[in-house]
């Protein structure tokens, strides 16, 4: 590296360029999360009800994507795509060239598949935690299974699965940073654009880091508010070991810590 100081002008340029593509990143996150929620619920239900063939297929499917790093999935999918897209265009006789296609959908595809293990685990865990009696009571009053699911079970599953799904939101947003490797235009791509001119990449990555950090802070804030609104216990920052800090300990001996749940950490 020729210089050893930070080029703040370049940094600002990268920030602006990165922020310009923020909507793309948001779209990526949103679309893939919505798809993964539906697919995750579907898989969880299939596994929970032990539907023959379908549940085994889902389990294998989930194992594959739980074990494969997202970057590898990206490489493989993009490889399959680029090798075959021409053939597909010819086969369907579309009137387009490969360059016309917005490969955003590839990113959404890979992201939703990579999130699938986490979302189905969230739903499956929530399903398993619902007592059998809820199902039995619903069936005993004459509900069919689809009605039962729609009116009784899923409304209970969603709040229970919320903490894990919120985690998924946070880590999902970070995961979108990888899709630039297959050429998708998002914040990363934008932040690195100005760097190509000067061959200095540090400022670009720092800009991208700042943008993602900001996103995560905003998301965390929103999630905290939503959690409070839905009254879920979570580990908050108001806990400490200091004995003098008796505001957290109420008479009767039940300290605050007894009501805490341990959040699952997904990178």
């Amino acid at each position: 590296m020729a210089e050893y100081t930070l080029d703040t002008a370049l940094l600002r340029e990268c920030l602006a360029s990165g922020l310009y593509y923020l909507p793309q990143t948001i779209q990526l996150t949103l679309y893939s999360l919505i798809i993964t929620l539906f697919l995750g619920l579907f898989c969880a239900l299939a596994i929970y009800y032990k539907i023959p063939a379908l549940s085994q297929f889902c389990k294998i499917f989930l194992t594959v994507f739980r074990g494969t790093p997202m970057v590898l999935t990206l490489l493989i999918v993009s490889l399959i795509y680029s090798s075959n897209i021409v053939k597909i265009i010819e086969y369907f006789r579309w009137n387009i060239t490969p360059a016309d296609i917005n490969i955003l959908f590839l990113g959404v595809l890979v992201l939703s598949l990579s999130f699938l293990p986490a979302s189905s685990a969230a739903f499956l865990g929530a399903l398993l935690s619902i007592e059998k009696i809820q199902f039995e009571a619903g069936l005993s009053i004459g509900l069919t299974t689809p009605q039962l699911l729609r009116t009784v079970i899923i409304p209970q599953v969603i709040p229970t699965a919320m903490p894990l799904l919120m985690n998924l939101l946070l880590s999902g947003c970070k995961a979108t940073a990888l899709v630039y490797t297959i050429g998708i235009v998002d914040v990363m791509y934008g932040a690195l654009l100005p760097c190509a001119k000067y061959y200095r990449y540090l400022e670009g990555y720092i800009a991208a880091a700042i943008i993602f950090w900001g996103i995560s802070i905003v998301l965390n804030f929103i999630i905290n508010r939503v959690s409070h609104a839905v009254r879920m216990e979570k580990i908050d920052d108001n806990t400490s070991f200091n004995a003098k800090d008796t505001r957290n300990i109420r008479p009767g001996g039940r300290g605050y810590a007894g009501t805490r749940t341990c959040e699952k950490v997904i990178r």
Partner: peptide
């Protein structure tokens, strides 16, 4: 912690790679 958990690992890799020498 907020930074390490809030930014993607790929960015952290590159920032360390380019930034540590500086």
């Amino acid at each position: 912690i907020s930074f390490m958990r809030g930014t993607p690992i790929i960015i952290q890799l590159y920032v360390v790679y380019y930034g540590l020498p500086m």
